[in-house]
């Protein structure tokens, strides 16, 4: 049994509100590779494409995939997944795989922000922002649009600021009005951008403080790719934060590692073969249907 198990691979698929990600790990839990693409409107089609892409990238065939866990906002739309797990549990697992000592993780995605408390690699407590998208990636997108900038140039420009503009409103729409007001007052662009980052950081740090922030802190999610945002979080938090080389994939990596754990549980129960077969049939059937 051990010989077979050591040749198996495991996949995690994270269908986020904005981006879809997938990763493959081996029997040791080591990541072979990952893919990232936009989610779009068709979750199910996207789940299939991301699965095919990640298999191709890692040079692994579907038959070698023992178990798949889906996560994220669109986790219900991955028909070939063996199990669904929330993104909170998956992120915690993924962050802990990259930073084994992590105690607090802050994740800012396309439409939500979450704070995770992690102990011994396991999620123990969490908070998420409520229904509204204030203080998330969407907030940044609205600011970029208002200022006529590309998302990826905002961070660099903001780093030139010494005196960030104060943005008091955390509502995305009202903040947009404040940005326009600052523009009309002739405030320099770097200061406005730095102000936007501090507004987002303030909101997420307020969330984090409800759970008591303990170091080391890791910052993930699409928004963590933004250098200005990292600086703002550190300034408001008053402590350094670590950012993984690819902050988008902690969810799918965690899902893949959890898939591995789950599959080994099944192997121990003697249900491993059965799971594998069901998975292949469901996947092929679905792929044919969508083509």
């Amino acid at each position: 049994m051990d010989i077979i198990a050591s040749k198996l691979f495991f996949t995690g698929i994270d269908i986020g509100s904005t981006m879809s990600k997938a990763a493959v790990v081996d029997a040791e839990g080591v990541m072979l590779g990952y893919v990232i693409g936009p989610t779009g409107a068709e979750h199910r089609r996207r789940a299939n494409m991301v699965m095919e892409d990640v298999l191709a990238k890692c040079g692994v065939s579907l038959d070698e995939i023992a178990y798949i866990i889906s996560t994220g906002y669109g986790r219900v739309n991955v028909p070939f997944a063996d199990k669904q797990v929330t993104e909170l549990t998956c992120h915690a697992r993924g962050v802990a795989a990259l930073f084994p000592d992590v105690r607090t993780a802050i994740d800012i995605g396309g439409q939500d922000a979450k704070v995770l408390k992690i102990k011994n690699g396991k999620l123990v407590d969490f908070l998420t922002n409520d229904k509204c998208a204030a203080g998330t990636g969407r907030f940044l997108e609205v600011a970029a649009e208002t200022l006529g900038l590309e998302l990826n140039e905002m961070g660099r420009i903001s780093l030139q600021s010494d005196t960030p503009v104060k943005i008091n409103s955390l509502c995305t729409i009202f903040a947009q009005q404040e940005i326009i007001a600052s523009l009309s007052e002739g405030k320099p662009l770097p200061d406005i951008l730095a102000g936007v980052y501090i507004a987002i950081a303030t909101r997420v740090v307020k969330l984090a403080r409800q759970l008591k922030v303990e170091p080391p802190v890791v910052f993930t999610g699409g928004v963590a790719k933004n250098g200005g945002m990292v600086k703002a979080i550190e300034a408001v938090l008053g402590m350094p934060v670590s950012v993984p080389p690819e902050p988008l994939i902690t969810g799918c990596l965690g899902a893949a590692i959890l898939a591995r754990d789950e599959a080994f549980k099944l192997i121990n129960r003697g249900e491993y073969k059965l799971q594998k077969k069901q998975l292949s049939e469901a996947y092929i059937e679905f792929t044919e249907k969508t083509r």
Binding site: V85, T86, E87, L88, T89, K122, L123, V124, D125, F126, T128
Partner: peptide, 8 residues
């Protein structure tokens, strides 16, 4: 959130 709470 409820599902994640149950997972913890």
């Amino acid at each position: 959130r409820v599902e994640a709470f149950v997972e913890t």
